[in-house]
Design a protein around this nucleic acid. Structure first.
Length: 653
DNA sequence: GGGTCGCGCTTCC
DNA sequence: TTCCAGGAAGCGCGACCC
């Protein structure tokens, strides 16, 4: 995705589209002969005046502000500052140069217009006709015939149709692409068993061993691999070969489609290659970074990164500076990194703008269910839930909460998501998303696995429906809020503090439960929590009390009633909840009620239960944090200044 | 002062 | 006619906790 528009170009009043910074005129493979001016004008005309356009202008202004801020910082640098940073930069360059590894040969393979090509394979009548995969709102990719009109990936369909009225739209079908992706991966595996799949249609292969074992040159291997892929799938691909992944990726784009480019593993060749390479060709340098580097420092090619090394070290954070300098040296990853674990999972949907709270809540329900189902498929439980919102004006907000416990059920997700959303209301939205992160290491829930909860149910001799199963799963993760019925209170209690229990004991009392020791052991493996198991095996069924059993007006209620001081603060624990948080207040009330039930229980049977103060503190902490954060939230017009993003920290160098 | 968290921003496909 | 995606990851900062 190259961004080749010029900043501050032309007379805006005569040709306003020229200053509309769109990516749709970028030089992408297959778009060489495109009338860029025409494309830019049409995109501008169709976007002008829309909310999207207004937001783009805001972002543009934001970027300019950021550029000005960095300029101002640059202006403050004295000669001695610059010579100081030059020394640092020179040292850094020497260090980076010492890491150069020319012993490996990397190949980057990129399928040509993958989705479109797969669709053409499925419907040969599409061959030779301009076609795009996607819909009116957005297209995922376009074939080369469509690209000639300026149609490209990430362009809204209605603009694409304007550019190319005869454009054929084909809906996205990930099943198909996954199948063909699987075929290509079979081929890749023959060349590098540890190849790295970058996406469905891209992969990195370390072909060093293959080359030496087969006595083939990298060029021959690339040719053979492309042929094999074509034979296996009927699709074409392009390949790039270089001494590292960064360069291989750049190379694969040079002779697209159905071509290849090999960069020799020699320092001179690399430096020559890099010398005129536009910075935007580098993965990780997007529109914003490119503009900053160009406008502030006049850096357009990778080589110029080295020429301006002192300024880079002076004005960017350490990791950014390291990255920019290594780009200037043509360095990139040469090792085969460990397979990284998934760090987050999300689900988001765009819809017609609405501020109807019932409708928004329903959307949230759907998202929570989808996310929960996806998480369960992979056996994941997460701690941090992030709500993403896009307002009708295209302003994006995220709000997150980190819970004391791991959750995966849709009910738990929805409960916390609802709290996050409530704090933003009223608001008119066009998109909502939920993301879960901070996954547990060993507390994965296997949907087929028997759990302690199953055990309890078995002991009770009652069956539970799937909905209850969800509740039970959240039990295991210790989250009890939001459940009014059908919950074993003591069970819930004992699970609640799971997170704060020292898990490192090592004994096997749990086996005493006899025929159910399998489930207990399974759980033990999952949560490594013997304290809980011990308690849970102290004759749970004898201590089961349900909320349903609670009658208003009982002694439990009267002894120390929960009162909201100043209509805000809980009289028992001090937690603060605004009056509008009706459900939360009810839950909180239930919480204290349960606490008292437990007290009574403990005094009756002298069983030892876990102290729960920590949970309350966490609750309070989260609440207070939430309030503090919200005060400075962008929803009230306060953003983190964009120039902070690249600002250098004090600890640098 | 170091570690963690929340969140905005950027990038990629 | 239709009117700008969705999923994932990483970085950097301020705020806050210990």
């Amino acid at each position: 995705m190259e961004n080749n528009e010029k900043s501050n170009s032309g007379n805006d009043s005569e040709q306003p589209w020229q200053s509309y910074h769109t990516v749709y005129t970028n030089a992408k493979a297959g778009m060489e002969g495109v009338d860029k001016e025409k494309v830019q004008r049409i995109v501008y005309e169709m976007s002008k005046g829309s909310k999207y356009f207004e937001n783009e202008e805001k972002k543009e202004a934001y970027m300019k502000q950021k550029i000005e801020s960095i300029r101002a910082q640059q202006a403050k640098l004295t000669d001695s500052d610059i010579s100081h940073y030059q020394k640092i930069a020179d040292r850094k360059i020497v260090e980076l140069e010492a890491t150069r590894d020319l012993s490996r040969t990397w190949l980057h393979v990129d399928m040509d217009a993958f989705y479109a090509a797969v669709e053409t394979l499925a419907s040969p009548s599409l061959k030779g006709k301009p076609m795009a995969v996607g819909g009116m709102s957005m297209i995922s990719t376009a074939n080369y015939e469509a690209r000639k009109f300026g149609v490209r990936a990430a362009m809204p369909g209605f603009i694409a149709r304007k550019l190319c009225p005869e454009l054929i739209f084909v809906p996205v079908d990930f099943k198909k692409y996954t199948y063909y992706s699987g075929l290509t991966r079979k081929v890749f595996q023959e060349y590098d068993p540890n190849f790295m799949a970058a996406s469905l249609d891209e992969a990195y292969l370390d072909i060093t061993n293959f080359c030496s074992e087969k006595g083939m040159t990298a060029e021959e291997v690339a040719e053979e691999l492309r042929e094999s892929v074509n034979k296996e799938t009927g699709l074409t691909c392009s390949a790039g070969v270089g001494p590292n992944r960064l360069l291989a990726k750049v190379c694969s784009d040079i002779n697209k489609p159905n071509g290849q480019f090999v960069l020799p593993n020699e320092r001179m060749a690399v430096m020559t290659f890099i010398s005129s390479l536009p910075i935007r060709k580098i993965g990780g340098i997007g529109k914003v970074t490119e503009n900053i580097l160009k406008d502030v420092f006049g850096i357009a090619t990778c080589e110029e990164m080295l020429q301006k090394s002192s300024l880079i070290c002076a004005l960017f954070s350490r990791s950014s500076a390291d990255f920019f300098l290594s780009v200037g040296l043509g360095l990139g990853g040469t090792d085969t990194p460990q397979v990284t674990k998934r760090k987050s999972m999300s689900n988001e949907r765009t819809f017609s703008s609405t501020k109807d709270e019932a409708l928004l809540h329903q959307k949230l329900v759907d998202l929570a269910e989808n996310l929960s189902a996806d998480m369960k498929k992979e056996g994941l439980c997460g701690k941090t839930l992030t709500l993403k919102l896009k307002t009708s004006c295209f302003e994006v907000r995220t709000r997150a909460v980190t819970l004391p416990n791991y959750i995966c059920s849709s009910k738990d997700i929805l409960k916390h998501a609802t709290k996050l959303l409530k704090a933003e209301l009223p608001v008119s939205l066009r998109l909502m998303g939920l993301r879960m992160s901070h996954f547990s290491e060993g507390i994965a829930i296997d949907p087929k696995q028997k759990t302690l909860s199953n055990f309890i149910v078995t002991e009770e001799g009652s069956e539970r429906g799937p909905e209850d199963q969800e509740l039970l799963e959240s039990n295991i993760n210790g989250d009890t809020h939001g459940r009014r019925e059908s919950i074993d209170l003591v069970d819930a209690y004992q699970m609640q503090d799971l997170d704060h229990i020292d898990y490192r004991h090592d004994h096997n009392d749990a086996e005493a439960v006899g025929s159910s020791d399998l489930q207990i052991d399974d759980l033990k493996d999952n949560v490594d929590n013997h304290d809980m198991i011990e308690e849970s095996s102290l004759g749970l069924e004898a201590r089961v009390i349900r909320f349903n059993d609670y009658e208003p007006g009982s002694s439990l209620n009267v002894r120390e009633p929960v009162v909201w001081l100043n209509d805000y603060q809980c009289s028992v624990c001090g937690i603060e909840l605004p009056p509008s948080f009706v459900e939360e207040r009810q839950e909180h009330f239930d919480f204290h009620l349960a606490e008292r039930l437990q007290e009574e229980e403990s005094s009756n049977n002298a069983s030892i239960l876990k102290p729960r103060q920590r949970v309350i503190q966490n609750d309070q902490m989260n609440q207070s944090r939430q309030r503090k954060k919200q005060k400075a939230s962008p929803s009230q017009g306060k953003h983190i200044p964009i120039d902070m993003f690249f600002a250098k920290t004090n600890q640098n160098f």
